[in-house]
Design a protein around this nucleic acid. Structure first.
Lengths: 140, 140
DNA sequence: ATTATTGCAAATCCTTTGCAGTACC
DNA sequence: GGTACTGCAAAGGATTTGCAATAAT
């Protein structure tokens, strides 16, 4: 297992004048070890099953931090609920979401990436991040 | 001015067994006459300035309806706040959002549209709707 | 020892819902 | 006249915040 992200995490904490705690680390660890898209409650529930107690307050505070330092990605769908996913070592990708089942499938197109860069540049901007979600149904 | 959307609106209302009321119509009218992306409160504030009183309850109920019948589009950013925009007669487009100023610029790329259709088809799905947002900064 | 952390419960914010009075057909 | 509408205020659900007890360096 590649644990090099731990040092990066410690550095981020130092930069923010924060301490390395079990709660913070557990959340990071959960996300880096699990592919998938989790809302705050799911993360807390999972950790609870493993005898690690984290409050919502701490979870949200930690998730904000992880997003800020690029350890994870936040996505908010139309239901207004934030979902988080590992971003470390994960190749960049976007999401296809099945309207019927809620299943999330990842996709990535270098062509699209290039075109959107060009579009932004054209208008005098550079892309900091982007959201690209396809809401789909199975072809019957 | 093209007011043909009024009939479409009346038909939608009939289909839902709903009545044509001033509040509902005012919201539709505001969105069709104004390009832009408005949250619920902004819409209510604007209408209030024009002496039209609409409650939040009614506004949200109406906006849901307008989305359902494709009169407008709902978008939720990471802040969790829903924004609505006119969809009628508007050529399809996506959004570039300036991180610093909040300015929203529209864009549209037929190439991207085609590629994403192909990606979905490839996995056995068809696209019902999509969200494509570029978060950008001005090139300095 | 000092300084930041945690969890709790209360507070916020956006959105939804129940209900009594009001408006449309 | 009957059925649907509106606004209000209360309820809901996700997220944030203040604070006293607790843990990290």
């Amino acid at each position: 297992m590649n644990n090099s992200y731990i040092n990066g995490f410690k550095e981020a904490l130092k930069k923010e004048n924060l301490k390395f705690t079990n709660q913070r680390f557990s959340i990071l660890q959960f996300l880096t070890n699990n592919d998938g898209h989790y809302d705050c409650d799911s993360i807390i529930d999972y950790l609870k099953k493993n005898k690690i107690k984290v409050s919502k307050a701490t979870a949200y505070r930690t998730l904000d931090l992880l997003v800020k330092y690029d350890f994870c990605r936040k996505m908010v769908l139309d239901d207004g609920i934030a979902r988080y996913e590992n971003k470390l070592d994960a190749t960049h990708h976007d999401h296809m979401i099945c309207i019927d089942t809620g299943k999330i499938i990842e996709f990535m197109s270098p062509e699209i990436e290039k075109i959107q860069d060009d579009i932004a540049k054209d208008k005098g901007y550079k892309i900091i991040k982007h959201v690209h979600q396809l809401f789909v149904k199975k072809i019957s």
